[in-house]
């Protein structure tokens, strides 16, 4: 029989402990809440899968999920092509490289609640720079605190401003790793700019793009802080994304059971989509 070196476990132990405390233990408490009815004085009664059935049938959940999907799809459709385009337009060498990189990285360095607060003030129709400019200089009727469409546009523009840089920087990293020889070979083949993009740059960016889309999907699907600070989910419920709805239910109404069930469903969707996407994108590389 092969001798197994049991000391190996010692090396994995720190990670196991870390993951247990920051992920597994909190998640188990959520699982615990999701199958029970909680009353005052910490009295718990078994409720089975009832909360899950309620959530999956609830129109409120469907609406929040729909808004969430709309938000994520919209920002992905804007940020990914825009990020690629900016990365392609950035200089590959010379003085302007560090300038561009730092400028690109700046939005990502700002804390999320500050981003929300910044855009909130920026977009206020009476005192905000953007709001005032749109209303009083361009004469466009814009009020994100009253008009759902304006609120949506503001949230999306804010997310694009905040996170396109991530796509840009990842794509740029992919682009600069392409040796000059490829571009030379393509020019000698007589390839057009589109062909160079399609046959050299895009295939070489595929891996970083996969990561970029995955990160943007997860972050935007789980987004909370910025829209919460910017619109607080309003006007009405028009920008109440999944996470905002979840917090309302858990901390506003103190419905611990349904909120726990909802967060598990929420988590499963994020996990499932991420897994599907990653598997599909990397399927070609394995065989």
């Amino acid at each position: 029989m092969r001798k197994v070196n049991q000391k190996g476990w010692l090396f994995v132990l720190p990670v196991v402990i870390l993951v247990a405390f920051n992920a597994l233990v909190p998640m188990m408490t959520v699982v615990n809440y999701s199958v029970q009815e909680t009353f005052g004085n910490n009295q718990f009664f078994w409720h089975g899968l009832g909360w899950f059935q309620d959530i999956l049938r609830s129109e409120r959940f469907h609406a929040a999920l729909g808004r969430q999907v709309l938000f994520t799809v919209t920002i992905l459709l804007i940020e990914v092509p825009l990020g690629i385009a900016i990365a392609l337009a950035m200089p590959r060498k010379g003085f302007w490289v560090p300038v561009c990189l730092v400028t690109m990285a700046l939005p990502m360095l700002i804390p999320w609640n500050v981003v929300g607060a910044m855009w909130n003030i920026f977009a206020l129709p009476d005192i905000g720079l953007l709001g005032y400019f749109l209303n009083h200089v361009l004469g466009i009727d814009y009020n994100m605190t009253r008009d759902p469409v304006a609120a949506w546009i503001t949230i999306i523009v804010m997310d694009v401003w905040h996170w396109t840089s991530l796509v840009v920087l990842l794509c740029y990293a992919g682009l600069v790793s392409i040796p000059d020889a490829y571009y030379q070979a393509a020019r000698i083949d007589g390839a057009s700019n589109w062909a160079v993009f399609r046959h050299i740059q895009l295939p070489k960016m595929k891996h970083v793009l996969t990561i970029a889309v995955l990160l943007r999907f997860m972050d935007s699907f789980n987004i909370y802080t910025e829209p919460f600070v910017l619109t607080g989910g309003g006007p009405g419920n028009s920008t109440t994304l999944l996470s905002i709805d979840l917090v309302k239910m858990a901390l506003g109404q103190f419905d611990l059971g349904p909120a726990a069930a909802m967060s598990l469903i929420y988590f499963s969707i994020t996990l499932l989509v991420s897994w599907l996407f990653y598997t599909l994108m990397t399927r070609h590389d394995t065989h």
């Binding site: 020889a181 030379q184 070979a185 000698i188 007589g190 046959h199 295939p203």
Partner: peptide, 21 residues
Amino acid sequence: MSPQRRNISLVHQFFVNYPHM
């Protein structure tokens, strides 16, 4: 005259091929 318009070919020290073709 740009290389696109001239009938030439070049083989590099590195192996340069289109990766997905």
